[in-house]
Amino acid sequence: MKFTETKLKGAYVIEVEPLADERGFFGRSWCQKEFAEHGLNPNLVQCNISFNLKKGTLRGMHYQAKPYQEAKLIRCTRGAIYQVVIDIRPDSFTFKQWVAVELTSENRKMLYVPKGMASGFQTLMDNTEVFYQMAEFYHPESAKGLRWDDPTFGVEWPNEVLVISAPDRCHSLFNDFVVGENE
């Protein structure tokens, strides 16, 4: 696997390094030892799948508050997404900055999101499926979100938002964010 750190410390784009032959290819998408060697949380405890019918669907910006902050490894297994991560760690030199990575079933890239960041995506194709590996169990009482269109961050989404849940549409703006809940 190839690990490339983004401008947000601890957030990595991870690429499969395929070994190809006449059958196709073989590649590793997860290795506890390699993740630990890069300082990434190697203890994944839960996997989730998100299936999205329509291009333009937006999910996010999600995170879990202390003490259940989660790291996650995100991969698009069908279709394509524009995956966004916002650094909401108050002590980080990239606090309030964001990065985006296009994850597709063809490029097989993954994004590792460390705890203390909010994440969300917009689908770039109909019938898109996303696979998440999580380093913390889901705790509904700790599930939080920030507005996808918050001007504090200025995230540039590639397409018009056509489908979004009521909770995602109504998340708080950053000005209402309680910084201490994410420390």
Rank of each mutant, 00 (worst) to 15 (best):
K2D: 06
S92M: 03
I49H: 14
L111T: 10
A65I: 12
V155C: 11
G60N: 08
Q69S: 12
Y12P: 13
F174H: 06
E160H: 06
G154C: 12
L173F: 04
M110V: 11
G145L: 06
E136I: 15
L103S: 01
M134Q: 14
P67W: 00
K55Q: 04
Y63A: 13
G79M: 06
S165Q: 02
H62N: 12
P140L: 04
R78S: 09
V99H: 11
G27K: 13
R59M: 09
I86V: 13
P90R: 04
N127Q: 12
E34A: 11
M134G: 04
A100I: 04
L19G: 15
D21N: 05
I86F: 03
L19V: 11
N41Q: 08
F35D: 01
N182M: 14
P90K: 10
L124S: 05
S29F: 10
N52A: 00
R75F: 15
R23C: 15
F153H: 05
C31P: 05
F95S: 01
E106C: 04
G120K: 01
I14D: 02
S165N: 02
G24P: 09
D149K: 11
Y138W: 14
T4R: 13
F95C: 04
E156L: 12
L173D: 01
N48A: 14
Q122D: 14
P140G: 05
Q32C: 15
M117T: 06
E34S: 13
G120N: 06
V45M: 12
A65F: 03
G39D: 06
G145A: 12
Q83R: 01
E15V: 13
A166S: 08
A166C: 09
N107I: 00
Y112H: 03
M1H: 09
R169Q: 11
L103I: 06
E70G: 02
Q64G: 05
I164Y: 02
T128C: 09
W98V: 09
E129C: 10
Q97P: 01
L8A: 07
Y63K: 08
M125I: 07
I14S: 04
W30F: 12
T104C: 13
T94C: 01
K33L: 05
Y138F: 15
E102V: 12
P151I: 13
L40M: 15
F3G: 02
E22C: 08
K9H: 15
M61K: 04
N43W: 05
Q69E: 10
G39F: 11
G180L: 13
M125F: 09
